[in-house]
Structure formats: structure tokens, C-alpha cells
Design a protein around this nucleic acid. Structure first.
Lengths: 109, 109
DNA sequence: CCTCAGGTACGAAGTTCGTCGTACCTTCAG
DNA sequence: CTGAAGGTACGACGAACTTCGTACCTGAGG
């Protein structure tokens, strides 16, 4: 079951409520903001985001982001690859990533 | 004491988390989308939005929107005026209102 | 084989959120 | 003044959310 199921990614059916609810949490917002600020679609590991929560909670957060259609999770069994769905997001929610990048820029100052 | 108090509106201190949390609820999203689609800053009554919830719940929702810096509440004692903070929103969160309008357009079809 | 590290599934505890009931306040109409 | 309508404050209840503990699975390396 690595990925034959067409279901699992709801990028085509997510409404604004699901997206906003996913982006309510600061940790999840950090993940998306980092991915958005990167500029490239390169794959990242879950560990590369220094989330101050346990493994189980990280699994939960990435699942919420995936079900909101914001990221792509590639399961390698042992490892997991995280990738931003920039194309879909920019097409369906233009300006959203810029909002997150801008907030992170202000917060980081 | 109709409105001399400068405090009460947090438009200058709200973060994205507060805004997204406010926009998570479908009723609140409907209110903002309607206000945004209007185009003018004309004042509206709470009753003009046909929210299928009780008065107390409406009070709660409008308070959340106000604390998120999205609307302006004018208290007439007996009545209450609702007004969109379009200028501040467009300045600090450009593209957000367009997202809400677009979703409402799709949902309404 | 066994061990280890990354990830997941299930369940529990604590918190937040949406909703309403009851009671009270404010303004307008009579 | 009395009543009616809109709004608010406080409290309560159920649902959802965040977090973690425990147990289990998967792949790499000795």
C-alpha cells in the first residue's frame, strides 16, 4: 500500500474551511511557510522541520496537511518525504503562500 | 460610551493563526464573504446575515471576527452595525478576501 | 539473525470551540 | 411607565483538536 490508492489526497475537494483549519496550528503553518519560502519543490524529511513535538504528533500534523491538500507525502516505509503542492495551491488559492511567507518573515525578525 | 474607546479592535496585533481560526467556521466565513463581495463599506445589521444560529451564538461569532481584526462593530445599544475592515485586511493580508469571494462563488453555484 | 531509527495505529487526558438556556441590559414605540 | 425586540454575560454540554504513551510495523546495517 505504498500509493496505489487514488484516494488519500484531497487536493481536488478541499474547501477553504479545511485549509484554514489546517493552517490554524502554528506548527503546521511553520511547515508550509518553510516549504513555500524554499522556492523549489525539493523533497524534505519530517525531521528537517524542527517541530518541538513528539513523533506521533508530527504524524498527526502531516496527515492534516496532506488531507487539506497542501502537501504530498511519499512513503518509503522507513522514511517519509514531504513535498509542497505549490502548483495546486497557487491555482486554487492564489496568494495564500505569500501570506504565510510574509507572516514568517515578520515573526522571524 | 458609544465608541470612544480605541481598544477593542485588535487589527494591529492579530496574527495569521487568529485570522485563520476565525475563518475556520463556515458561518463566519459566510459573513466575511458577503461583506467582501459587496464592494462598498456600507454598514450592515447582524440580522441581515441569515445565520441559522441563536442570538447568543451570533454574538459569539461576531466577537471572534472583531477580535481577529476582520470587522468593525458599532454598538448602538439597541442595535449593532457590522462593517468590513477592507482597508486593513487588504493591506496586511492581500488576496484573502478574493479567496473567500471565490469560494463563495463556487459554493453558491 | 538482531538492533536501531523513523513512522504509524489506537487510545487517553486536557484544552478549545460551537451551541444554546437563562437572565439581564438597552433603546424604541405605545 | 410598560412592553417588545436586539444584544450581551455567564454557565453548561457535546464535539473536535492537540498532545502524548504504548505497542506495532518497516527498512537499513551490524
Amino acid at each position: 500500500m505504498t500509493g496505489p490508492g487514488p484516494a488519500g489526497d484531497d487536493a481536488g475537494n478541499t474547501d477553504l474551511g479545511t485549509v484554514f483549519r489546517a493552517l490554524t496550528d502554528e506548527h503546521r503553518r511553520t511547515v508550509i511557510a518553510e516549504l513555500a519560502a524554499d522556492g523549489s519543490d525539493r523533497e524534505r524529511t519530517c525531521n528537517s522541520f524542527d517541530l518541538p513535538v513528539s513523533k506521533q504528533t508530527q504524524t498527526h500534523h502531516f496527515r492534516v496537511l496532506r488531507e487539506a491538500g497542501l502537501i504530498h507525502e511519499i512513503n518509503y516505509g522507513n522514511r517519509k518525504g514531504i513535498r509542497l503542492r505549490r502548483t495546486e495551491i497557487d491555482r486554487r488559492l492564489p496568494g495564500l503562500l505569500d501570506l504565510l511567507i510574509a507572516e514568517r518573515r515578520d515573526t522571524g525578525s
